[in-house]
């Protein structure tokens, strides 16, 4: 379990990886990725019980993570590489021909750490539920985590899954909602206002927590707390307040950097704000 200081040192490095990958590929999704850095770093370096870098698809005896909003693959790839699932140098292949780092996460090329393809939105909670049920059948007490975009909650399948999870008391699942309030066409409140998301999950029978996704200490504390809420007959959801583009001033608080790559000059401006703490790939 990595301490807070180390986690905070990792975060700017992951942000550097994200903007460098997206810049090099000339495409990808930096905004949502930057907003979820603290979550991914905390999850992989502090929270989850992992089975080591020899990746096993069935995840028996270890915690599992599912990324439902697959377009924020840069942050996941960076953290998986930094954790040792594959060489950090491989981040340079992101979105390129013959790469294991597909634009959206996939199992087909055999990238360690990925258990299902995602990108077409709304499917990850169902898959996470299935994995959580398999753990119950296997008498495996480890947990399943999932992450979803807020815009993604507009997909109906999410609510099919939310209903199923509560009805079946799937209490070994901790889902997190990346509440950055932005989606491709604009603020979520303007595109399709979803109202009170916490109240919706409560009404669906979930145990609802919230956290500040930009504050590493709060992320770690809340995820630790969420673990203590498992096994009590309810699925757990954390509403994570995030800032799209967090850490790069000109990308913050706007949907404009949802799926756009920085040019050379913009990359330099971004890297100037992010110290190289561990070493670039």
């Amino acid at each position: 379990m990595t301490d807070l200081k180390e986690l905070e040192k990792l975060a700017p490095q992951v942000r550097r990886d994200i903007v460098r990958m997206v810049h090099d590929a000339k495409s990808g999704h930096p905004g949502g990725s930057l907003g979820c850095v603290e979550f991914f770093v905390a999850l992989y370096f502090n929270i989850m019980k992992l089975g080591g870098v020899n990746f096993k698809m069935d995840g028996k005896g270890e915690d599992m993570f599912f990324l439902s909003n697959g377009h924020i693959s840069p942050v996941w790839y960076s953290v998986l590489a930094r954790k040792g699932y594959f060489p950090v140098a491989e981040l340079a292949t992101f979105r390129k021909l013959n790469s294991r780092l597909q634009g959206h996460p996939a199992t087909h090329e055999g990238l360690p750490g990925i258990r299902v393809a995602s990108g077409s939105l709304g499917q990850g909670m169902s898959v996470a539920l299935g994995a959580a049920l398999s753990k119950k059948l296997n008498n495996d007490t480890s947990l399943v985590y999932s992450l979803h975009g807020d815009g993604e909650l507009q997909e109906g399948q999410i609510w099919e899954a939310a209903m199923f999870a509560a009805a079946n008391k799937v209490d070994n699942l901790i889902s997190t909602i990346d509440l950055n309030g932005q989606q491709i066409d604009g603020p979520t409140s303007e595109v399709l206002d979803m109202g009170d998301i916490a109240a919706k999950f409560k009404a669906f029978g979930w145990d609802v927590l919230s956290m500040d996704g930009a504050n590493m200490e709060n992320v770690v504390e809340t995820l630790q707390k969420a673990k203590t809420h498992t096994g009590k007959g309810k699925p757990v959801v954390i509403i994570m307040h995030t800032i799209m583009g967090n850490g790069v001033d000109y990308m913050m608080h706007t949907h404009k950097w949802h799926g756009v790559a920085p040019n050379d000059e913009e990359l330099d401006r971004a890297l100037g704000q992010l110290p190289e703490t561990i070493g670039d790939y």
């Binding site: 539920l129 296997n138 199923f164």
Partner: peptide, 28 residues
């Protein structure tokens, strides 16, 4: 009964849950 899952009228969720069960080593 413990290996049977009634998902209700929600086929999209059923396919995803089946995929997740397969990840965990089941044959759904």
């Amino acid at each position: 009964p413990e290996r049977f899952f009634q998902v209700g009228i929600a086929e999209a969720n059923m396919m995803g849950v089946a995929a997740g069960l397969a990840i965990g080593g089941k044959v759904p």
